[in-house]
Write a protein that binds this DNA or RNA. Sequence first.
RNA 1: GUGAAUGUAGCUCAGCUGGUUAGAGCACCUGGUUGUGGCCCAGGAGGCCGUGGGUUCAAGUCCCAUCAUUCACCCCA
Length: 419
Amino acid sequence: MIKAIKGTKDILPSDMPLWHFLEENVRNTMREFNYSEIRTPVFEETRLFARSIGESTDIVGKEMYTFTDKSENSVTLRPEMTASVVRAYIENSLDRLQPLHKLFYIAPMFRQERPQAGRLRQFHQFGAEALGSSSPLLDAEMIILGYNIIKSMGLTDLAVKINSLGIPSSRENYKNILKDYLSPKLKELSEESQKRFETNILRIFDSKNEKDAEIMNDAPVLLDHLDDESLESFEQVKTVLDASGIPYQIDPKLVRGLDYYTNTTFEILSGSVGSQSALCGGGRYDLLAEQLGGKASPGVGFAAGMERILLACQNENSIPDQKPEIDVYIANFDKSKISEAYNFANKLRGNGFSVESDYLSRSIKAQLREANKNNARFVVFYGGEELAENKIQLKNMTDGEQANISLDSMDSIIEKIRG
RNA sequence: GUGAAUGUAGCUCAGCUGGUUAGAGCACCUGGUUGUGGCCCAGGAGGCCGUGGGUUCAAGUCCCAUCAUUCACCCCA
């Protein structure tokens, strides 16, 4: 039997109500904040991701779906969206149309990792990117957007963490301070962290190793070594967040894994999805556009994992399950009138009703059961004695009442179904 | 890439220390009087017990391998 590729999942009709609910909430919130949808290709030149996300990151180093196409070009299934959005922004000269662009997306992403709870190889993210302004208002807006959407899914076990990584010069300066602190303790660190000491020292803060954590607890913290401008910006983000009423914690150890971040970074975590608890993450990336060959242009954004959010919803039982319903089920007595009944169904559909009819030529009893399974509000019995008198029988499935109505008075049939 | 657990009907699982034709609940189908749903009742269909090898008179049950799934590490949404 051919099965779906490891780490991929079918999203079945029974899952759809939940997905649609999330997507609607995303679109509504994005509309409230005036973000416009953007769609970009699922695959890009490999260089785009290598340059933006960073060669030393795990995403680029070992998680990308990269292959060579028939023209010998190296292409990659997008592991995240920010690089693509910035590329599209530059390539289409959006910055010349207007100074500020606020964009959102809902799209599949691909990373070749070992699947586990809340982690898939093809997964879906929604997210937003605001390009063209370095206003801290937008940093705060990203957190508010993400938080509001997640909240709209009824989730409660949440934590918002924010931090600032500052600008490269102050960060480089700080890295040296951190190096000085860690050098004498280097041998006490885990093997993994010793490697990071060379490749990306900040990420030692991420380590879940106990000894590492102990050592890092007393480590000097980037927040204490920020330049004045970054500090000022961070203060403003906090001011806006305070006013918004969103509860948050400052986490000096929050170091996001992607290379392009500057200044504000944040995460929204859930306590109900297992080990992969980040539902949403983002931050500012003021140097990315220039790095990708565009005009210098500040930006800030976030991405949220849809499967993770839905997993949290299931675990917290935050969304009452609602069965989809149809307006009318057409049951027919007469096999000889099957196409006539079918046309009658189409007539109702033409009036905007959702209508199902029998395709299996089953007994009336079976058809009624089918109507019930479809959550039909009404059943039309088509055929038999009534049809001989040019009538149908209309049954209200909620109270069981039924009445004969002449086919000549379509209007009153429609009116009854409208309720 | 590393570690652990689990693979029996569509789904969730039982199957005791190896012993005849492999079970339950849910779901599905058909009935419970002529043409009427949800509840209830009766019946039915559905399983190379993940795959391959081994031990044994005998394997769903024990051993090995393999594949798959799940969870965790790493990292991230």
